[in-house]
Design a binder for these strands. Structure first.
Lengths: 247, 247
DNA sequence: TCTATTCTTTGACCCAGATCAACTGAGGTT
DNA sequence: AACCTCAGTTGATCTGGGTCAAAGAATAGA
């Protein structure tokens, strides 16, 4: 999951490692090579894609839907450690076991590559290794930004942070530019939000109600969110770093 | 900062990107090339190595001492997002700005490479890009493991987690193997520990005292720690994943 | 030796968020 | 329509860790 980078989906649908921005780098020979080892898999909402510790025979990227990475303690406490949106990469070239559970939050289509051939291709095509390094550095930045959220922010700030991130990454919004109102459907249940934010679902619910009451967000039903003023929301998130999202 | 990987320092002191394990991969031509663009810098404890947002002209790795990565909000709340121990890499090839402050916690010696030539060399030497990808994936795993600590663990568990990590990465210990008692000096002040764990320094102090009272750790002075039973400490940390550290 | 200064510990009290519990409301099934 | 079930809301109460305050302990300097 990347916080810094915006995505323009829909382009470059055959790209081996889907680019976050409009793809300007596709190289035909790369694609042709990959075509042979590429396949698609569908997962239903709630289904586990990979169990932590399992041997992973593939790497891949999310084509549609949303998946989440979670870690769980023996006593059941769970923490979401990443959100995989379309174009995000899954898997660890050079690693055998998965480090955390990957679960489909909505229905998910993944574009997979068998790991061995993918790794061999990485050897031959430095381009891909570079792209992967770049993406991994993005994820690392995002993970570290999230550490600040988890460690130091209040419940209200946490909710605002999550809403900003989802708003930023969801393309179906801001018909009037990034400073206009934003409209989107939350792809997460209150429980999933809680797991992401290190809160309980009750606290999430209460803070959502509070933000609604204060006019920071509007809610239709449980999932449909309107953000009348993105800047206001970002203030609530206490975020200095907006990744250049707003002017 | 890596949680999973152990380091055996002292080997391979000229290696461009120092390996965490005993180095079996040094290649002479690589070294010779790097020698030209390599230089050393010293920092005193407390000194800032890089300010968040600054343009970074170099990448490098920690040779000795300990540095920390921190993020700070406008109101002063700070969260440490990474701990850099000897052999850890600093910098983001392909990125211009630093994403967070890097501060010397103790006196630090860094081995630096000017960024441009380093990146050019990365182009020519896929080996290095792979190594860097591997290291970045390790950091990502560590960051995500830390998200569980920050989001879901109690203060006591947090302290125990931090102590395990420091113990695991400190080489000057376990004269009687990994199941014997461990002895080391904490490289962090109580405040730094608090910033790492998302706590206040008072809570850190109280929990250290509690762990001491309960015999989980022994303290001589403020910094010198003995862990009579590593397994006991890991139980206190609530960690299922010990990274294969103990049998 | 006698301060300063910096780091740490400990105590008293408070509050944000957890916990426990009841309730609402939208689908879906029969 | 009657009944589930699942997701979310809201209330009442409790508590872990924060906050404020004061007092050691170690080191450096004069």
């Amino acid at each position: 999951m990347s916080v810094q980078t915006q995505m323009t989906p829909g382009n470059c649908s055959d790209c081996p490692i889907r680019h976050r921005a409009v793809c300007a780098r596709c190289e035909v020979d790369e694609l042709n090579e990959l075509e042979e080892i590429k396949y698609y898999r569908n997962f239903e909402a709630g289904q586990t894609i990979i169990w932590s510790g399992d041997k992973m025979g593939f790497v891949g990227s999310v084509v549609s839907g949303i998946a989440s990475l979670t870690q769980t303690m023996e006593d059941g406490r769970t923490q979401m450690v990443g959100l995989l949106l379309p174009s995000d990469f899954v898997g660890r070239p050079g690693r055998d076991g998965a480090a955390y559970d990957v679960t489909a939050t909505t229905d998910v289509v993944m574009c997979c590559f068998r790991k061995k051939p993918f790794e061999e291709m990485m050897e031959r095509t430095p381009h891909i290794a570079h792209r992967l390094l770049e993406m991994t550095l993005d994820e690392l930045d995002a993970a570290r930004e999230w550490m600040l959220v988890l460690g130091r922010k209040t419940a209200r700030e946490k909710i605002a942070s999550l809403l900003s991130i989802v708003a930023r990454r969801d393309a179906s919004l801001s018909p009037n530019g990034p400073s206009g109102p934003m409209v989107f459907d939350l792809p997460l249940t209150r429980e999933a939000m809680a797991d992401y934010l290190g809160l309980t679902l009750e606290t999430v619910s209460r803070q959502m109600s509070a933000l609604k009451k204060d006019g920071v967000i509007q809610l239709e039903g449980k999932r449909h969110v309107t953000i009348p003023d993105m800047r206001r929301l970002m203030d609530e998130a206490g975020d200095d770093a907006d990744g250049g999202f707003l002017g």
